[in-house]
Structure formats: C-alpha cells, structure tokens
Simulated assay, not measured.
Amino acid sequence: MRLSRILLSTLVASHVLAASANVELLQTPAPQSAHATRNVITNLSPHAGGYLLTGERGLLLQWQPDGQWQQLQTPVSVGLTAIATLADGSAVAVGHDAAILRREASGEWHKAFDGYDLTRLQIAALERRQAELQEAVDNPAQDADMEELEFQLEETGFNLEDTQAELESGPNKPLLSIVAAAGERLFACGAYGTLLRSDDGGKHWELQSASLDNPDRFHLNALSRSDDGSLYVVGESGLGFVSRDNGDSWQAMDLPYDGSLFGIIAQPGSANLVAFGLQGHVLISRDGGENWQHQKIDAGASLLGGTIDAQGRVVLVGHGGIVASFPVAQPDAVTVRKHPSGAAFSAVAVQGEQLILAGQFGVTAWKMN
C-alpha cells in the first residue's frame, strides 16, 4: 500500500530506462535530511507506539504521533516501499532494484538482498525450465504437443537471454510489498510477477514466482495476512491469490474486477477482507476471500492504501487527497472527504481520533471528523 503503486506500469518502464544510471544507489547510504518527514512517504508500519515509515531515496523514519521523529541510517539510496516487523523485534524492508534491508531487534540496517541476487535466481530458474523443456522435446511423451513444447522452449530461451542481459544493464524490478507469515517466514512481491520467500527472517531469499498461476507475469502489488494465518496477494488485471498453508501453496481467487488492485487488508479477528485499486474500485469479502462484493467509490480516484480497525471501520486513501471510510458491514455507507493538501496518499493508520496520513508530501496527522 504505497505511492509507488501509482501507475505501476509507467513506474516500471521509467525505472528500467534509468536502471543502469542508478546501480550505484544500491551501494550508497541514504542521505540524511532535516526535512525527511516532508519527503515522499510510501508506507507505514506500527512500531513501539509509533510508526516505521519508508520512503524515497532509502528513507526510513521512526515517527511518533506527537511529531517526534528520527531518520534511521540505511545502506541504500533507492526508494523503499514497505516494511514488516517480526515477533522477535527484527524488521525487514523492501524497495526498488529489489533491495531488501534487514535489522536485528536492536541492530543497524544492512542490505540482505538486491536486484543482482534476484536476477541470478531468475536465471537459475529459467535454465532449469529450459533443460526440462529440452528433455521433453528430445524425448517426447506419446501424447506430447510438440508444437507447444517447441514454442515454450523458444520463449524460455528468449527470456533467459533478456534476464542474463540484466546482470550488465542493472536491476530494474521494484519490490512493492512484504508480509510476515508464521514463524520466521516472509514473502515479498513486486513487478513482473516477482514473489520471494525467506524462511529465516529475511537473511536468505528464494524465488517463488512459479508457485502462482501468473504466466503473463502481471505485477504483484500487495501482500497481506489475516489473523487465521491466511496469506493474500493481489496485483494488476484483477489478479489475486490466497494461501491457507503459510505459503506452501497458492490458489487463485475469483475476483469480480479485472483492473489493477493496489492493496488488500484484513480486519483483525475476523474473516473480513477489503481489496482496492484503480479508479475507486473496492472488493469486499466476509469469508476469507471465498466470495466477493464489488463496488465503486463515486469520487473515482485510485485507492492506494488502507486500514481496517477491530470494529470493522475501513479507511482508504489515494489520489487527490481522497479519504474514504465505511463500516465493512455497510459498504454502501461511504463517507468521502478530501484532505486540503490534495496530496496522493499511499498509507493510512488510525491513532485515536486522528488519521496518520502518509504520501506525496510526507506524513501528517488529521482529525477524523
């Protein structure tokens, strides 16, 4: 749920063009700024009575609702998009160029993974797939569709050549979301169908993209976890998947909207889910993703971030300063307000009678009524 989801296809295209010029940003610590809270903020995560904020140019902030804040030192200057905190107090952040940062509960942030690591994982996966297809072509089964096998082999070869070229041109795939599953397992997702898994709290990562039925490599924009342990991922073209076994397997969800979804959130202690995205489209499930209701918020602005509190109050934010709220049990009872800044907001949290809004112009507190 972040600002870098806005027109993701445009973001990815421009990022690819700039990749070779920005390679050094993976080795350059984030600049310190006296005005960091006014920079672009992409996401927020509850932490120690306040929030950890991610943002542009490697920005990580520890922010309190009373306005006190501290910029944390990070080893990269690429944009950071999301953060997850584990039960032991350690935290993992993800961002552009497939950067993954990690810190122990009381330690410093360090880079655990980046786009070069991702490219090498993708090359290895494509080489395995190429060998499997070549074996199937050389020794076809009796009912084999040779034309299809040869097409897949050729396509895999082209993809392998393109991916190998990325080792020279530089990383170009942003990671957009991260979620902590049970135990020390984490999942991160992003552009071109990228799905990564860690089983040791973010120290090491493996490619899991093939576990999703996503042959067109649609972008994966958001991950979420419900209190019962179910994991969810949504993306462009109405793409959505659920895992009921801590990410060991994933099943496609039948969503009643085929446009881009930028977020999915779960109500604490409930089976209620809300997914949201392009031009105000909202999907609501009351049974853990089995069935969905589709509606459109009249303002029509794209929705980029959201939260549901324990009482079932949904708050969604997005372009043009839009702040939409409704009870999850009464999705037609929508109240739409606009923040006077007109900013594009990427994330929101409820703190007492205030909303904590993060986005285009930084972070601010705003009274709910």
Rank of each mutant, 00 (worst) to 15 (best):
A310C: 09
T307W: 03
K296R: 14
D287A: 12
I264T: 03
P256T: 04
V282K: 01
G312A: 08
L278R: 00
G240C: 04
H281T: 06
D245L: 14
A310W: 14
Q267Y: 08
A299F: 13
K296P: 04
S249H: 09
S260R: 02
Q293M: 11
S302W: 05
F241R: 08
Q295Y: 14
G280S: 07
H281C: 08
N291Q: 14
W250S: 07
G288C: 02
N291E: 13
P268L: 09
H294E: 13
N246C: 10
G288I: 07
G269D: 12
Q251S: 09
S302G: 11
Q279P: 11
G263N: 07
I284T: 10
A275C: 07
V274T: 04
S260M: 10
D298G: 12
F241A: 08
A275G: 07
P256K: 11
E290V: 14
V282C: 08
D309M: 10
V317P: 02
D298W: 15
V242D: 00
I297E: 01
V274F: 10
N291G: 14
G240T: 03
F276R: 00
I284R: 09
P256H: 10
R244Q: 15
F262P: 03
R244M: 13
R244K: 12
V315P: 01
A301K: 07
